[in-house]
Write a protein that binds this DNA or RNA. Structure first.
Length: 295
DNA sequence: AAGACGGGGAG
DNA sequence: CTCCCAGTCTT
């Protein structure tokens, strides 16, 4: 039976984080709130190692919201490269425009204002407040949910959707004091990313192990836990990605229909994907007759 | 409450 | 080859 108090467990994570935190570029002392915002959007569903080089490039090229806002979307999609979910790049640019129009080109620190920005949801708003401004907030990403779920509730993996009960419990764990709250938010995330990982947790190296409810229960359920399965090969998602890669790597319009690199794609599926890309605003039709598209 | 949405590195 | 990742937005 675990016997450490909530506070002692939270403190253990904070202490561990102060010792073990990775030196990520968006954690540098000279980072800007804009840099934090960009990093958070890039990190939505994309791992740190893949984000880092792109983030550096973006900060060099577009150091402030106004710089990105002035850029054509095609260039932004190109610079996004292969980070995935290119709608994020589109929204990031829209976000930059909104920052210029509504906030004088600055990143606001209030939740309502952040949430009103394109691409900024519950998690990202809280992360920006905590990591860019040091504000007290509840940062709940998949890592923090997994850490809390295991250490406090003996659950192997978080449920698909965040519940009110889960949010309330997480809120109760955040230290009152501002700087400690930010360290807990970042530390719990870091612990989930480096130690309390989804499928191969390193409990022997975990500061919470002595008081972890899941460890105490014998670390059950990892194999039986429901997995989110996402078919990939041959799906519309893959075809959309291939079309976008084609448009990205070209300097101008491309005749997509009958293109050699898409030979194996069924014409019907290709048409459907092209139509959806145009509907999403990610691609535009240049010449209907010739099946020519561009970013 | 579901489903859609990219891509690559690790196991 | 399967699984996962600092989620968001739209039905």
């Amino acid at each position: 039976m675990p016997h450490l108090s909530d506070t002692a467990m939270v403190d253990a994570v904070v202490t561990w984080f102060e010792r073990e935190a990775r030196e990520l570029p968006w954690r540098s002392p000279d980072r800007s709130p804009w840099g934090v915002l960009v990093s958070e959007v890039m990190l939505q569903q994309t791992p740190v190692v893949r984000v880092a080089p792109v983030w550096r490039e973006w900060m060099k090229r577009w150091p402030a919201p106004a710089d990105l806002a002035a850029e054509p979307q095609s260039e932004v999609i190109r610079a996004w490269g292969r980070l995935g979910y290119p709608r994020r790049a589109m929204r990031l640019r829209e976000c930059a425009v909104a920052l210029v129009e509504r906030h004088g080109g600055e990143v606001p620190r209030e939740t309502v204002e952040l949430r009103a920005l394109p691409g900024i949801g519950e998690y990202t708003a809280a992360a920006i407040r905590a990591f860019a401004f040091g504000e007290h907030d509840v940062v709940l990403d998949t890592n923090v949910r997994r850490v809390i779920g295991r250490a406090w509730h003996a659950r192997p993996l978080p449920a698909a959707h965040l519940t009110k009960g889960e949010r309330d419990h997480a809120a109760g764990l955040v230290p009152e004091e501002k700087s400690a709250s930010a360290l807990w938010n970042a530390g719990a995330m870091e612990l989930g990313a480096l130690v309390c990982t989804a499928r191969a947790p390193r409990c022997d190296a975990c500061v919470l192990a002595p008081s972890c409810a899941w460890v105490a229960a014998g670390s059950p359920g990892l194999d039986e836990a429901p997995r989110r399965s996402q078919a990939w090969h041959g799906t519309d998602r893959q075809v959309r990605g291939r079309v976008l890669a084609l448009l990205r790597d070209a300097s101008g319009p491309v005749t997509v229909t009958g293109h050699a690199s898409l030979e194996d794609v069924e014409p019907g599926q290709l048409d459907r994907c092209l139509e959806s890309l145009v509907a999403d605003g990610l691609a535009r039709l240049v010449s209907d007759e010739r099946g020519t598209y561009a970013l």
